[in-house]
């Protein structure tokens, strides 16, 4: 059904910019790429001669590795530049860094940055395509898409499902992309957590705010726990991680209120025993490792589509 849709985006800055058709095409493309990862020789020549730069200003082994593997499986040349090794610590601005990189004619820059909106700034000042690999507390579109793919694989569909997202909605770019992505694809997204971590106006992104975690999880098809941090920049958000675990952690008991076949997700890395009971994280309902596998396929699809494949 999506084969006639043409992907017209030069950049992937957030799921807010993508239509249902765009996301459908990305997922369909990712499904076809997933097979490559099961081959004995896990490499196709699709992007031979293309140059991809991983520009990471925040430490992230998982996402960077996932993008790098995705690019290499399609035979692109990849370069990694990390924040500590780059010139931005010497006072060079993001725009200067980008222009210097652009002078080397990369086809695509994958940016991870602690400031919301950085990928937009980069995209406005360079010729290469930009993929947002997580910016501040804004979006993490490739994570949102791999979560969509994982749920679609497990449930066969996304439309009509109830997705419960528990925890720090305010500071989680993963939560933001997931709320936008799942609600656009026709799922109901229920969020819950300490009121200090539920941002104002999150309903306008497509979420329903629940007064209790139990209410959010009730009859859910998917439970997603988010990584928790006790405080950010002198903002007293929580009394303690212990209190959080007791009242907002995803426990065995809580999972019992969801649908019997509900799946458990987490964007990682997990604070075991805080936001997620370790038995659940490692249990049969957990699809956390599928999320990692699908991450590579989704990132292959994103790189492929913005480089003009269709």
């Amino acid at each position: 059904m999506y084969s006639t849709h043409r992907f017209s985006h030069k950049h992937i800055l957030g799921l807010a910019d993508l239509s249902v058709e765009d996301m459908g095409l990305i997922l369909q493309t990712a499904e076809s790429f997933k097979e490559i990862s099961t081959r004995a020789i896990k490499k196709v020549p699709t992007l031979r001669g293309k140059t991809i730069v991983n520009l990471f200003f925040e430490p992230s082994t998982r996402t960077r590795l996932s993008f790098e593997v995705a690019a290499k499986r399609m035979s692109a040349d990849t370069f990694n530049i990390s924040g500590s090794g780059s010139s931005t610590v010497k006072g060079e601005t993001l725009i200067d860094t980008a222009r210097n990189l652009d002078a080397m004619n990369p086809d695509c820059i994958i940016l991870r940055h602690s400031r919301s909106g950085s990928p937009r700034l980069l995209a406005d000042h360079i010729d290469a395509s930009v993929i947002n690999a997580g910016d501040g507390t804004h979006e993490h579109p490739s994570q949102g898409l791999l979560d969509l793919m994982t749920v679609k694989e497990a449930k066969g569909t996304i439309s009509g499902l109830k997705i419960a997202i528990i925890g720090d909605i305010a500071h989680s770019r993963v939560a933001h992309s997931n709320i936008i992505g799942f609600s656009k694809m026709g799922a109901t997204v229920a969020v819950a957590g300490p009121a200090t971590l539920i941002p104002p106006g999150v309903e306008e992104m497509g979420a329903t705010v629940c007064g209790s975690v139990a209410k959010a999880v009730e009859d859910a098809d998917v439970i997603m726990a988010l990584r928790i941090q006790k405080e950010r920049q002198h903002d007293p958000l929580l009394p303690s991680l212990r209190e959080y675990a007791n009242f907002f952690g995803v426990s065995q008991k809580l999972v019992g209120a969801a649908k019997p076949d509900a799946i458990i997700m987490h964007p990682g890395p997990i604070n075991r025993g805080v936001e997620l009971d370790p038995k659940i994280a490692d249990g049969s309902r957990s699809v956390i490792l599928d999320q990692v596998t699908n991450g590579v396929a989704v990132r292959m699809a994103l790189i492929y589509l913005i480089m003009g494949g269709d």
Binding site: H176, P200, G201, E204
Partner: peptide, 13 residues
Amino acid sequence: NDGALATRLGLRG
């Protein structure tokens, strides 16, 4: 300004 737009943009309100 704090509110839905700040939330959507991921900016502190």
